[in-house]
Nucleic acid binder design. Structure first.
Length: 204
DNA sequence: TACTAGATCGGCT
DNA sequence: GCCGATCTAGTAG
């Protein structure tokens, strides 16, 4: 059982690093969602970097728009977007003002208040084995489990609503770096990172 | 297991 | 009009 009180919230300095490096360093950290003082939490096990330059798959590639403007803020914010009209995905903004880069959180390993996540996802607190894995093994799935939607777009991760905790005892994890999933452009870039052998990674 | 369609919205090419 | 950083339910093998 993970005791969240033993973990320290990541500070501004943590987010101030190269996008690819942040994508890798976020693995193992604990994403926390505070809903009226009930904490939902999960360990980040899969991420993808979306860059500000030469990355056609990045939302920022064609400049600032109403949808992606949060991406062009300074590091440490949450960028939430709607995809296919029905799903939401969340990112950690990286870089300085007007850069336009972010890290997509693709999967988490649920730690705390799994029943509430299940309620958010499936409308019931009991989970079959199949639905346990299905709970948070994808970018839109974890947003639904954590009740993150466009209302949370632009949330500052240094605040108390949504934040990320440091982790310890993860020095032994193995990290795999490979190409990103679900995109048609810039497919060759190896900007996806995941924790080897974790069952919540969305796809091998 | 493997493919397919359908859901449904906003920002462009 | 077209298409996407997705997911689910359905069908076929």
């Amino acid at each position: 059982m993970v005791d969240l009180s033993k973990h320290i919230k990541l500070t501004s300095n943590f987010y101030k690093r190269k996008t690819e490096l942040l994508a890798k360093d976020l693995l193992g950290k604990i994403l926390v969602r505070n809903i009226s003082n009930k904490l939902l939490a999960g360990r980040i096990v899969e991420t993808e970097a979306y860059l500000s330059n030469n990355d056609e798959a990045s939302h920022s590639f064609r400049g600032k728009s109403n949808r992606n403007k949060v991406m062009f803020n300074s590091f440490g914010l949450l960028y939430v977007y709607q995809i296919y009209g029905i799903h939401f995905c969340c990112n950690v903004v990286t870089g300085n003002v007007d850069e336009g880069s972010a890290v997509l959180i693709r999967a988490i390993d649920p730690i705390k208040n799994i029943e509430t996540m299940s309620l958010n996802r499936f409308g019931e607190t009991t989970l079959s084995h199949k639905n346990l894995v299905n709970l948070t093994n994808g970018p839109a799935k974890l947003c639904q489990a954590l009740a993150i939607n466009l209302n949370e777009n632009g949330t500052n991760l240094l605040g108390d609503e949504i934040y990320i905790l440091d982790s310890h005892n993860i020095s032994n994890i193995k990290i795999v770096q490979t190409t990103r999933i679900g995109i048609t452009k810039s497919k060759e870039l190896r900007l996806r990172f995941y924790i080897k052998d974790n069952s919540f990674v969305s796809k091998k």
